[in-house]
Amino acid sequence: MIQVINRALDLLEQIANEPEKPKSLTELADGLSLNHGTCANILKTLVTRGYVEQIGTKKGYILGAKSYYLTGNKSYQKDLLEAAREEMDALTLLINENCLLAVLKDNQRIALYRTFAEQDLQVRTTDIKPVYDSASGRLLIAMLPDEKKQRFIAKFGLPTGDSWPEIQSESNLLETLALIRREELALQTIANRHVMGLAVPIYKNGLVVASLSIYLPEYRYMALDKRQLIASLRDSAEKINKRLV
């Protein structure tokens, strides 16, 4: 038996007993008779991998999105899901394109719910994706308060490789994010895949809690009434916002 793996699983099981009730480091360590330093290191790894979520400094730990995805359990952010599901289904029925509801976690955008169009050619995206690589991720970064945005950039850096080739400097990134924030709209063209992504914010109590996106092949996007497509996306987001009040 590999001890550190055994301890990590013990921690996950202890958190999963009450998955939405935050448990402090002291509570978890003492409950398993673990050294606090050892427990903190294991939790740090589980948080980094998305299996555990730290609510805030000294506020405790709950199960992360990855733990729910392993079981197909959709209860993560259930209030958001309940508000969005019907409206997203209606949006996909209206525009016949795939839609995605996502949240920000560290430097990743995590899909909570998706709908699929009845098209022979569809765009698929992964459940977890680096934020710079997606319209939804870019939108979520742009909508962060300025202080959190600066902390994000300081911690995770600028886009690298092909993740966002238009961005060449921090000032360039901040200007682009400011434009996205003003317009409350992120557009992404993935040239090598001929894919378009569009994303708008979802609000709860005046704060952005998620993004609503449409992903489709570029050739279909070019043939559509783009203003109407964006209007439909915004209208669906507004209906979700009202359900979250």
Rank of each mutant, 00 (worst) to 15 (best):
I2A: 10
Q3T: 09
V4T: 08
I5E: 15
I5C: 11
A8M: 03
L9I: 10
D10G: 01
D10S: 06
D10R: 10
L11S: 02
A16D: 13
K21F: 01
P22T: 08
P22Q: 10
H36L: 13
C39K: 04
N41Y: 12
I42G: 02
T45V: 15
L46F: 14
T57G: 01
K58C: 01
K58D: 07
G60H: 13
Y68D: 07
L70E: 13
K74A: 07
Q77I: 00
Q77P: 00
K78M: 05
L81A: 06
L81P: 00
A84V: 07
E87K: 15
I95Y: 02
A102H: 05
A102M: 07
V103N: 00
K105R: 07
Q108T: 14
R109E: 06
F116M: 12
Q119I: 11
D120K: 13
L121Q: 12
D127Q: 12
I128L: 13
I128V: 07
Y132S: 08
D133N: 14
G137S: 03
G137A: 09
R138S: 15
L140E: 10
P145K: 06
D146R: 14
K148S: 06
Q150M: 09
G157V: 04
P159T: 05
D162S: 11
P165G: 01
I167V: 00
L173C: 10
L174F: 12
I180V: 09
R181N: 15
E183V: 02
L185W: 02
L187V: 05
Q188G: 05
T189H: 15
T189L: 11
H194C: 12
L198M: 09
L198N: 00
P201E: 12
G206M: 08
A210L: 05
A210E: 02
L216A: 02
E218T: 00
R220A: 00
M222L: 07
A223Y: 03
L229T: 01
I230Y: 07
I230F: 11
L233W: 12
S236G: 09
E238M: 10
K242C: 04
V245H: 04
V245G: 12
